[in-house]
Protein backbone atom coordinates (compact mmCIF):
# COMPACT_ATOMS: atom_id res chain seq x y z
CA UNK A 1 0.00 0.00 0.00
CA UNK A 2 1.70 3.25 -1.03
CA UNK A 3 2.51 5.84 1.57
CA UNK A 4 3.24 9.46 0.73
CA UNK A 5 4.99 12.36 2.34
CA UNK A 6 4.93 15.85 0.89
CA UNK A 7 8.08 17.99 0.98
CA UNK A 8 8.02 21.65 0.01
CA UNK A 9 10.50 23.83 -1.87
CA UNK A 10 12.51 24.38 1.34
CA UNK A 11 12.78 20.64 2.06
CA UNK A 12 10.25 20.90 4.89
CA UNK A 13 7.60 18.25 5.42
CA UNK A 14 4.16 19.78 4.82
CA UNK A 15 2.07 16.61 4.91
CA UNK A 16 3.23 13.79 7.21
CA UNK A 17 3.63 10.20 6.04
CA UNK A 18 0.22 8.76 5.35
CA UNK A 19 -1.35 5.77 3.63
CA UNK A 20 -2.38 7.00 0.19
CA UNK A 21 -3.85 4.32 -2.09
CA UNK A 22 -3.47 4.93 -5.81
CA UNK A 23 -6.97 3.60 -6.47
CA UNK A 24 -9.85 1.99 -4.59
CA UNK A 25 -8.83 -1.65 -5.19
CA UNK A 26 -8.28 -2.24 -1.46
CA UNK A 27 -10.79 0.29 -0.16
CA UNK A 28 -12.67 -2.40 1.81
CA UNK A 29 -9.43 -3.12 3.69
CA UNK A 30 -8.12 0.42 4.17
CA UNK A 31 -11.38 2.30 4.42
CA UNK A 32 -9.65 5.10 2.49
CA UNK A 33 -11.13 6.81 -0.56
CA UNK A 34 -8.15 7.29 -2.90
CA UNK A 35 -9.65 10.43 -4.45
CA UNK A 36 -9.08 12.38 -1.23
CA UNK A 37 -5.31 12.33 -1.62
CA UNK A 38 -5.53 13.02 -5.34
CA UNK A 39 -7.67 16.11 -4.75
CA UNK A 40 -5.41 17.38 -1.99
CA UNK A 41 -2.35 16.85 -4.14
CA UNK A 42 -3.82 18.81 -7.05
CA UNK A 43 -4.79 21.66 -4.70
CA UNK A 44 -1.24 21.84 -3.34
CA UNK A 45 0.58 21.56 -6.67
CA UNK A 46 -1.68 23.93 -8.58
CA UNK A 47 -2.69 26.35 -5.87
CA UNK A 48 -0.33 25.90 -2.94
CA UNK A 49 -3.22 24.90 -0.69
CA UNK A 50 -2.16 22.66 2.18
CA UNK A 51 -4.58 20.24 3.87
CA UNK A 52 -3.13 20.80 7.32
CA UNK A 53 -1.91 23.76 9.33
CA UNK A 54 1.89 23.57 9.49
CA UNK A 55 1.73 23.67 13.28
CA UNK A 56 -0.17 20.37 13.19
CA UNK A 57 2.22 18.63 10.79
CA UNK A 58 5.01 18.35 13.37
CA UNK A 59 2.56 16.91 15.90
CA UNK A 60 1.43 14.22 13.46
CA UNK A 61 4.92 12.92 12.76
CA UNK A 62 5.36 9.32 13.81
CA UNK A 63 8.54 9.71 15.83
CA UNK A 64 10.30 6.37 16.34
CA UNK A 65 10.90 5.20 19.89
CA UNK A 66 14.17 3.82 21.14
CA UNK A 67 12.83 0.29 20.62
CA UNK A 68 11.75 1.21 17.07
CA UNK A 69 15.29 2.39 16.29
CA UNK A 70 16.83 -0.75 17.77
CA UNK A 71 14.38 -2.92 15.85
CA UNK A 72 15.44 -1.25 12.58
CA UNK A 73 19.10 -1.81 13.41
CA UNK A 74 18.53 -5.50 14.20
CA UNK A 75 16.68 -5.87 10.91
CA UNK A 76 19.49 -4.10 9.09
CA UNK A 77 22.04 -6.47 10.63
CA UNK A 78 19.81 -9.43 9.75
CA UNK A 79 19.39 -8.30 6.15
CA UNK A 80 23.14 -7.81 5.79
CA UNK A 81 23.87 -11.26 7.22
CA UNK A 82 21.29 -12.79 4.90
CA UNK A 83 22.90 -11.08 1.90
CA UNK A 84 26.32 -12.49 2.79
CA UNK A 85 24.85 -15.98 3.24
CA UNK A 86 24.93 -16.19 7.04
CA UNK A 87 21.26 -17.01 7.65
CA UNK A 88 22.00 -18.81 10.92
CA UNK A 89 23.28 -15.55 12.40
CA UNK A 90 20.54 -13.50 10.73
CA UNK A 91 17.63 -15.41 12.28
CA UNK A 92 17.93 -14.14 15.88
CA UNK A 93 18.21 -10.55 14.64
CA UNK A 94 15.01 -10.89 12.60
CA UNK A 95 13.26 -12.22 15.70
CA UNK A 96 14.61 -9.49 17.97
CA UNK A 97 13.45 -6.85 15.48
CA UNK A 98 9.94 -8.32 15.55
CA UNK A 99 9.91 -8.44 19.34
CA UNK A 100 10.98 -4.80 19.63
CA UNK A 101 8.55 -3.51 16.98
CA UNK A 102 5.76 -6.11 16.75
CA UNK A 103 3.41 -4.00 14.61
CA UNK A 104 5.95 -2.66 12.12
CA UNK A 105 4.81 -4.05 8.77
CA UNK A 106 8.08 -3.29 7.05
CA UNK A 107 9.97 -5.27 9.63
CA UNK A 108 7.49 -8.12 9.80
CA UNK A 109 6.31 -8.60 6.25
CA UNK A 110 9.45 -7.22 4.64
CA UNK A 111 11.52 -9.83 6.45
CA UNK A 112 9.42 -12.82 5.38
CA UNK A 113 10.96 -13.22 1.89
CA UNK A 114 14.47 -12.90 3.35
CA UNK A 115 13.63 -15.75 5.72
CA UNK A 116 12.31 -17.95 2.93
CA UNK A 117 8.68 -17.34 3.92
CA UNK A 118 5.84 -16.20 1.67
CA UNK A 119 4.77 -12.55 2.16
CA UNK A 120 1.33 -13.67 0.94
CA UNK A 121 1.34 -16.90 2.97
CA UNK A 122 -0.34 -18.12 6.13
CA UNK A 123 2.11 -16.48 8.53
CA UNK A 124 1.35 -13.10 6.96
CA UNK A 125 -2.42 -13.51 7.17
CA UNK A 126 -2.11 -14.77 10.76
CA UNK A 127 -0.15 -11.58 11.48
CA UNK A 128 -2.83 -9.42 9.83
CA UNK A 129 -5.56 -11.09 11.89
CA UNK A 130 -3.61 -10.59 15.11
CA UNK A 131 -2.81 -7.00 14.18
CA UNK A 132 -6.46 -6.27 13.44
CA UNK A 133 -7.55 -7.85 16.71
CA UNK A 134 -5.17 -5.47 18.47
CA UNK A 135 -6.77 -2.42 16.94
CA UNK A 136 -4.59 -2.13 13.81
CA UNK A 137 -1.83 -0.23 15.65
CA UNK A 138 0.55 2.00 13.76
CA UNK A 139 -1.26 1.84 10.46
CA UNK A 140 -3.08 4.76 8.93
CA UNK A 141 -2.72 6.66 12.16
CA UNK A 142 -1.89 9.80 10.24
CA UNK A 143 -4.62 9.11 7.78
CA UNK A 144 -7.11 8.71 10.58
CA UNK A 145 -6.03 12.05 11.98
CA UNK A 146 -6.16 13.64 8.56
CA UNK A 147 -9.52 12.13 7.80
CA UNK A 148 -11.02 13.40 11.04
CA UNK A 149 -9.58 16.78 10.11
CA UNK A 150 -11.22 16.55 6.71
CA UNK A 151 -14.53 15.38 8.07
CA UNK A 152 -14.68 18.41 10.33
CA UNK A 153 -14.29 20.71 7.35
CA UNK A 154 -16.28 18.77 4.74
Amino acid sequence: MPSCVWIDEDDRIVRPPDVTPVNDLFKDFTGIDSSLHHEELRAWVKGGVLPLALADVGKLQNVPTGDDELARLHRRVAAHLHRVGNDDAAGPHFETARTLAPWDWTIHRGSLPLEGDDPFGKSFFDYVENWGANGAPGYAWGNSALRSDRSSTD
Partner: peptide, 18 residues
Protein backbone atom coordinates in the same frame (compact mmCIF):
# COMPACT_ATOMS: atom_id res chain seq x y z
CA UNK B 1 24.82 -1.24 12.73
CA UNK B 2 24.82 2.35 13.97
CA UNK B 3 21.58 4.29 14.13
CA UNK B 4 20.71 7.93 14.52
CA UNK B 5 20.11 9.56 17.86
CA UNK B 6 16.43 9.09 18.70
CA UNK B 7 16.30 12.60 20.15
CA UNK B 8 17.78 14.12 16.98
CA UNK B 9 15.38 12.20 14.76
CA UNK B 10 12.47 13.38 16.89
CA UNK B 11 13.64 17.01 16.78
CA UNK B 12 13.94 16.91 13.00
CA UNK B 13 10.50 15.40 12.54
CA UNK B 14 8.81 17.78 14.96
CA UNK B 15 10.47 20.65 13.10
CA UNK B 16 9.32 19.15 9.77
CA UNK B 17 12.87 18.79 8.43
CA UNK B 18 12.94 16.18 5.67
Amino acid sequence: ALGESTAEVGDKLHNRIA
